[in-house]
Computed example of a mutant assay.
Amino acid sequence: MANDPLSLDEIVRRVDVKAADYCALSDRIWAMPELAFDEHRSVAEHIAMLEREGFHITTTVGGIATAFIAEFGEGSPIIGILGEYDALPDLAQVSGATEPRATEPGPGDGCGHSLVGSGSALAAAALKDALATERIEGTVRFYGCPAEEAGGG
């Protein structure tokens, strides 16, 4: 395996190539806010995206139905990236607003977890591609974390 350092420019290029798909993922998660430990559709969206990227998926991690691990590669180092996707009660926001503007009361991603999950998945996918292309040994793990604020998932 190569021991050359992977350039930041190469990873950024890989992020740019995939950005539109992951922005769309974020938009889908935003549009279907799910509260702590009930993020089933959000998890399915993340898993589908990461499976297309070639990650191996382990579901129901720690006995939690909405926790999962997506893994690619083998060996060291193991690079872990955490993604969140839960909505919070009473944080529904108007999409595209530049100032806080609530919609009808209800759950929402006003705290940005739709961005955290999709952005972290994008980082994992871009890093995975770079490691594979450069033949650099290592494991990339995406930890799908439910109930990040409201339940300690």
Rank of each mutant, 00 (worst) to 15 (best):
G144R: 01
D129I: 01
A70T: 10
N3R: 13
A124L: 12
H46I: 15
Y85R: 12
I79A: 03
A44L: 04
Q93F: 14
P5Q: 09
E10Q: 11
L127I: 14
L35M: 08
A44N: 09
A132K: 14
M49A: 15
P5L: 12
L25S: 05
S42D: 01
G112P: 12
A87K: 09
P33W: 02
I57V: 15
G75C: 09
V94R: 15
A48S: 14
G112A: 03
E134Y: 06
F55W: 04
R41I: 06
E137K: 13
K128L: 02
E137M: 07
A123C: 15
V140K: 07
V94E: 15
I29R: 00
V17N: 14
G112E: 07
Q93C: 13
A44M: 04
V140N: 02
E74H: 14
V15A: 08
Q93Y: 13
P107H: 05
G73Y: 07
L82G: 08
D109M: 05
I64A: 06
P146E: 02
S26E: 03
A87M: 12
P146G: 04
C111I: 11
F55L: 06
A126I: 09
G144Q: 02
G75E: 09
I69W: 02
P89F: 13
L91D: 05
E148H: 04
P5D: 07
I47E: 14
A70M: 08
E45V: 04
